[in-house]
Design a protein around this nucleic acid. Structure first.
Lengths: 338, 338
DNA sequence: CATCACCTGTATAACGTTATAGAGCCGCGC
DNA sequence: GCGCGGCTCTATAACGTTATACAGGTGATG
């Protein structure tokens, strides 16, 4: 069904290898021959069979981006960026959905998929340092987000502790004293939540506010529903919070919903802050104050690093890169930016 | 870096071909030999090199799902379903983002990507019947959503006219008389919008209500921002609507935001209905009434049809399948379901 | 006992590409 | 005039798999 190198070679009256050299620029080819070959390529409409090329080269041209949930807009937005960056570098990005399941993450780290992709970008949730170190697959791995540190792989993330600080400082600055956190996790396996809780505690301490364990709500997952339920529980406390910091925007949006249902005003009664800056947060009522990571930077950097490793390039700088973030003030804390 | 058939063949003391037959079950193999080979496979940890297999078979095992925007939750939710269905059938699904651009859609229909994927599921926005018919690439194509009809390809969609009917009937039933539509498109290239407008007009007529062109708002795209802007314009009319039907949930959510900003109560002053049943609509304030397509059915059917065509199976039934939908009443029309 | 069919297993030619070794040719220097 | 290096180009062997044709052995049939 396809035009192949042989067809071009016949048409142009040269050898197979010469056509290959014209296509890949691997060896110098005389100007006249090059033109004749190029003309044949244009006339017959040749495009290389990637399967064969990759068999020969030992690479597939595929990289995978594995996220815990496709339907979390943060990851969808990140994926959109990563896909276009990968395309620009000549790679095809395959989305993998781990559904936040340990087995799925392990299978990606070491499973048979490894034979078909050249490299993996993983947002780990259920695996930790140990599992990453135990990995035997040889293809490059880039970690994004949090959860795993001190491993010999590139790692792109924001400084979660600092991000928490910024959120809490803002809430303190607008006069809040009873600040809750939603999205702590039971196990020690999701370190990002721990980091965000740590930043929360440190910032409270810095502001001279007491740490009240009852104001830290645990959730099983990190969706809107989890945020809503946790917020309901917090409101049922004898002395409910006057501000809430959510593990992410989805949790914060769930909290907004619970507050609306219970008839509390935001931000007058309770202020709300999230993390991720998903587009949805610009349209909620009220709009959501959030910590905005530089998604473009994260997506592009992750893909570029991975491709550089795949192609054996020397990568300068440290393995771990912390990307910038900023606080976006919106209605849910009462002091919108301009 | 990998164990290959030859290694297994040596270890088991049989020929290459026999190992291949054990792996693929293509030819009968004696029980004793099979066990010896299987043992060698287990011991050495063999898994086939998919690149080579696909080169030989002429297929890559990749199918693409091309959508106009990854960040539209409807497509993210659909993708999640399609990915797992594809995996169950032994295929890898690659997401492609056309960004609602004509060039991107054309490139997918006929471009060089066609050499690397076995089949394509496309949600067309900017190409029409003509472009699909002009396609020369030989791989199977399944269309989802609307926009293109009367082409020799499988097509999975809901009945848009009927969906509009259901939405408008509901609004009429709760006593609305000035019902607006947001999301008509200027060109004739996005037929789904036309179909939904048609259903809107027909249902108005059936209810004995006049069709007011000024209540049909055009938008460039179909995001929250478009819905918000259009709603603002509608509110600026001398005689604003008492209900709004959005082209999709995102548009309806944008409308909700504009209404909140302008201080209108929903549903008391203006009722709002969308289409898609994205999760976000269950958490807005108020929650969003919507027409819910059966996303699971759409995603699974699209993948199954495509794979069946790729594998040359006979597919029974007509090319075009209309999947079911239902109306979910929530707060934005004042009459939540149980 | 010869013929035939059948059943297992084997040898080998593809699939389309790239990398390696080398062939031909030309001009330059000794 | 011969050898040598440099420049193009060619022939060909892989890459790992599957499909085809065939070989060898066994049992049944005439």
């Amino acid at each position: 069904m396809g035009v192949n190198l042989k067809d071009i070679a016949q048409r142009a009256g040269v050898s197979l290898a010469t056509v290959s050299n014209v296509v890949n620029g691997y060896r110098p080819v005389g100007e006249r021959t090059r033109q004749r070959v190029q003309q044949a390529i244009d006339e017959l409409g040749y495009s290389p069979n990637l399967g064969a090329r990759h068999l020969r080269r030992g690479r597939t041209g595929l990289i995978a981006l594995a996220v815990p949930e496709l339907t979390n807009p943060y990851f969808a937005e990140l994926a959109e960026i990563a896909i276009s960056e990968a395309a620009a570098l000549g790679y095809t990005l395959v989305m993998e959905n781990t559904a936040a399941q340990r087995e799925a993450e392990l299978a990606l780290l070491d499973g048979s998929r490894q034979r078909v992709i050249d490299g993996l970008i993983l947002s780990p949730v259920r695996v930790g340092r140990k599992e990453v170190l135990a990995r035997t697959a040889g293809s490059p791995l880039v970690l994004i987000g949090e959860g795993v540190y001190d491993v010999p792989h590139d790692h792109i993330a924001i400084d979660n502790v600092a991000a928490s600080h910024a959120a809490i400082r803002h809430l303190v600055a607008i006069g809040r004293r009873r600040i809750a956190f939603i999205g702590a996790t039971p196990g020690g396996d999701r370190q990002s939540a721990h980091l965000r809780v740590r930043g929360y505690r440190e910032a409270l301490a810095a502001a001279g506010l007491p740490y009240r364990p009852r104001l830290v709500a645990r959730t099983d997952a990190f969706g809107r529903l989890d945020g809503m339920r946790a917020m309901r529980d917090l409101l049922a406390l004898g002395d409910p919070p006057d501000a809430v910091f959510g593990y992410n925007d989805l949790i914060a949006i769930g909290a907004l919903r619970a507050l609306a249902e219970a008839g509390h005003r935001v931000p007058e009664d309770v202020a709300v802050v999230g993390i991720d800056d998903i587009e949805e947060g610009r349209f909620t009522a009220p709009t959501l104050t959030t910590i905005a990571p530089d998604k473009r930077e994260i997506g592009r950097l992750a893909v570029r690093r991975l491709v550089a490793r795949i192609e054996g390039a020397e990568v300068e700088g440290p393995l771990t890169v912390q990307t910038p973030f900023r606080l976006l003030r919106r209605e849910s804390t009462g002091t919108p930016d301009a």
